[in-house]
Amino acid sequence: MKAIKSYLCFVPFLYRILVLVLMPVVSCGVEYGLMLDYVMPMYLLLMLVVIAEVLADYWTFGGICAREFHGAEYLKSSVKGRGVLKAALFVDCIRKAIWLILLAGVNVLCWQQKTGEPVTNHVVRVMVGMVCSAYIAILIGNCVGRYVQNYGILLFVANLAGIVYIGISFVFLGVPFLVCMLGVAVGFGLTYFSVWNVMRKMEEGYYDGES
């Protein structure tokens, strides 16, 4: 609960409305409306989600790794500052993972309801591949985007993340289920890395290497 509170501290009101409420509702509506095939609409929708998530991160942790914002002095002035930031970053990653999984789940349900076809292992494998690709692309975009303070440059980074998503998902579409699980492992690794990287920058703020 405390971790969620920490996360919500970093999430402004408009972000909560747009990213946590409006984006899921619109995405699910789009899925329901277009669902004649379970791959292509989801594939395109996830690309938009990747771009949106990288751009939206600007409101929460934007520029936190940039040189000018080494400070975060307020967080550093409390002994709980490190913990609050770390918890917020982890919850953010978990929120993104849950949101992508839910999106895939809704996608498959809508598709099944419309076509009446069974959910095979192949369908699950494709969904796992796409969700992993999107998650990896979002976290890569976030890791880079957190060094950026200019929204124009972040837009470029977000589009690059979209291209990264396309590239990774192409790889995952044609591989066996076990290889797909590699994507899950990479996702876990990137989750840890993205949190560690921000915390490392915060620690660097305490130490400048001279004493």
Binding site: F10, P12, T60, F61, G63, F69, Y74
Partner: peptide, 8 residues
């Protein structure tokens, strides 16, 4: 100083 709060 200037780096007190997070930018956003």
């Amino acid at each position: 100083g200037g780096n007190y709060y997070l930018p956003n």
